[in-house]
């Protein structure tokens, strides 16, 4: 089974760090086998068409842009 890939897109600002923390909490709570990757490289961010950060991408699908997700939202994305 493939490991889920969750990318946190952002420059390392406060909201981006909070997003990463919430994603980690969601992964921990659900026990989903996931790789969490922080993408700070602008080319990598723009490749998804994302123009505002933070953003969260789950297995290549952009889930949220421009705000910090709630842990429950992340749980919903990764357990669908």
């Amino acid at each position: 089974m493939n490991i889920m890939k969750i990318e946190i897109l952002g420059s390392g600002c406060a909201k981006c760090n909070k997003t990463k923390k919430f994603v980690e909490q969601a992964v921990e709570q659900t026990g989903v086998d996931a790789e969490i990757v922080k993408v700070e490289d602008m080319d990598g961010i723009l490749a998804y068409g994302v123009l505002i950060t933070p953003a969260v991408v789950v297995d290549g699908d952009v889930k949220i842009v421009g705000r910090v997700p709630k842990v429950d939202e992340v749980i919903e994305w990764i357990t669908q």
Binding site: G49, L51, V62, V65, G66, R67
Partner: peptide, 22 residues
């Protein structure tokens, strides 16, 4: 921030979500 109108028409997920995040 100038954004991609044609990407909205093309339903490009990242661009749609960026617009929604404004």
């Amino acid at each position: 921030n100038m954004m991609c109108t044609v990407g909205i028409g093309g339903k490009i997920n990242g661009l749609l979500k960026s617009a929604e995040g404004c």
